[in-house]
Amino acid sequence: MHWHWLIVIYLFLGGLGAGAYLTSFAAEKGWLGKNSSLSRVGYFIAAPVVAFGTILLVFDLGQGLTKPWLLIRLLANFSSVMTWGVYILSAFIMVGLLKGYFAFTNKTAPNIISWAGAFLALATGAYTGLLLSVIGAVPFWNSGLMPILFVTSALSTGLSVTALLAPWVEKNFKEGREGEAHVYLIGAELIIVAIFFGMMNSGVYGPVGKESAALVISGVYSLVFWGYFIGLGLLFPLVIFTRQYLHSKQSEKQLAKEPSLAAKESSEAVQKGHHSYLTIVTDISVIVGGFALRAIIILAALPIWDGVTIP
C-alpha cells in the first residue's frame, strides 16, 4: 500500500467534479425535466473541485514541493495512463472554468464548449478508474469494470452535490426528474458492485483478488464497505429516492385526474418535501458513500506477490 488518503480524496474529487459537470449538462439539455434548476450549479463547482483534487495530488508526490519543475515531464509518457490523466484533467479544468464562466454570467456558451466539457468530464471520471484497472500486479484493480464503476459513482455523487447546492444558489428552485435519475444511477451502481465483488470473491481474478475482496467484505474494511458504502451510499438513498419518486408520480396522476385545490395542495406538499432535511441528508449520504468506495478500492489493494513469501 503506497497510496493513502490524498490519493483517495483526489480520485473522489475527480469523480465528483466530473459528475457535477455532467449533471448540469444533462439538466441544460432537458434530460432532467423541463427547466431543471440544476443547469448551472454543477458548472460552477466542476472545475474548482477537480483543480483542488489535482493540487492535493501534487502534495502526495515525493518531489511535488521540493522540485516542482520536474512535474512538467508528467506529460512525457504516452503509454502511461497517468500521463493521459494529466492531459485530460488539465483540459477539463480549462474547459470547465470557461463553461462555468458562461453559466455564471448567464450567457449561452458555444455548443462546442459544452460538449467538449461533457466529453472531458466523462474522460475524467473514466480515467480515475482506468488508472487503477491497468495495473496487472494488483488483481483487485485489474478489472475492466473499474472505470465503469467509477463513472457511475461519479455521476451519482455529482448529481447529489449539485442537487444539494442548487436550492441555495437558485432563487426559484424547482424539482425536476433528478429523483428518477438518482434511482437509476444507484440501481446501476448496485448491480455493478455486486458483479465486481461477486467475481473478485469467486477467484476469477486469482487468489490475491479474492483476498482483497475478503478484506472488504468480511475483513478490516467491512464496516466501511457495508456501513458507509452499501448502507449509507447506496441502499438508504435508493429507498428514499424511490419513495419520493413514487410519491411524486402518484401526486402527478392525482393532479391530472382531479385538478382540485386539495390535490394541488398535496402535490405542492410533496414538492416541498423534496427540499426537506431528509433530502439533504440523503444527498450527503450518497457523497459519503462515493468517498468510502474510493477509500476501499485504494486501501484494499494487495500486490499479486507480497515480495517476501517464497516456497
Binding site: 497510496w3 508526490l61 515525493g62 518531489q63 511535488g64 497517468m82 495495473i135 496487472g136 484493480w141 500486490p303
Partner: peptide
C-alpha cells in the same frame, strides 16, 4: 527525473 508518484511500485510485481 522521478517525481515520486509511486505508480511503478504498484505496477512492478517484484517490488
Amino acid at each position: 527525473k522521478c517525481v515520486g508518484c509511486k505508480y511503478c511500485m504498484y505496477a512492478c510485481p517484484y517490488h
